[in-house]
């Protein structure tokens, strides 16, 4: 955060189109894998989420400019993800180890 004299990064149109095209191709891949390739149950979710994570990385790094931005903003996003994982983990520690699910749940 120390140097405020940096130039703002300007992506070239080619770079932005490349990212957009990559996102489009990944979308097609994830649909084809889910609909036309029989991946066994735990792995299909892992594949779909992995592709979504790659897409999210592309958007955050190159559309939201985190790749060229001050690192503090990237840290904020990473902290949000960590706290989300923490929230889900602690909740699952409860819900996955109940003897009986509350009937109306």
């Amino acid at each position: 955060m120390s140097d405020h004299n940096h130039e703002h990064h300007i992506s070239t149109a080619g770079q932005l189109w490349a990212v957009g095209t990559a996102l489009l191709i990944l979308t097609i891949i994830t649909v084809v894998l889910a609909k036309f390739v029989a991946i066994p149950p735990p792995l299909d979710v892992v594949t779909a989420i992995s592709i979504a994570l790659v897409k999210a990385f592309l958007v955050a790094a190159f559309f939201m400019n985190l790749y060229w931005d001050v690192k503090f903003n990237a840290m904020l996003l990473i902290m949000a993800v960590i706290f989300f994982i923490l929230m889900v983990s602690i909740t699952l520690l409860d819900t996955m180890y109940r003897n009986d699910i509350v009937p109306s749940f």
Binding site: I10, S11, A13, V19, G20, L23, L24, T27, F63
Partner: peptide, 12 residues
């Protein structure tokens, strides 16, 4: 995805 691309282009 297309709209994200156009927003990025708008900023550019």
């Amino acid at each position: 995805i297309g709209s994200s691309l156009t927003v990025a282009m708008a900023i550019r």
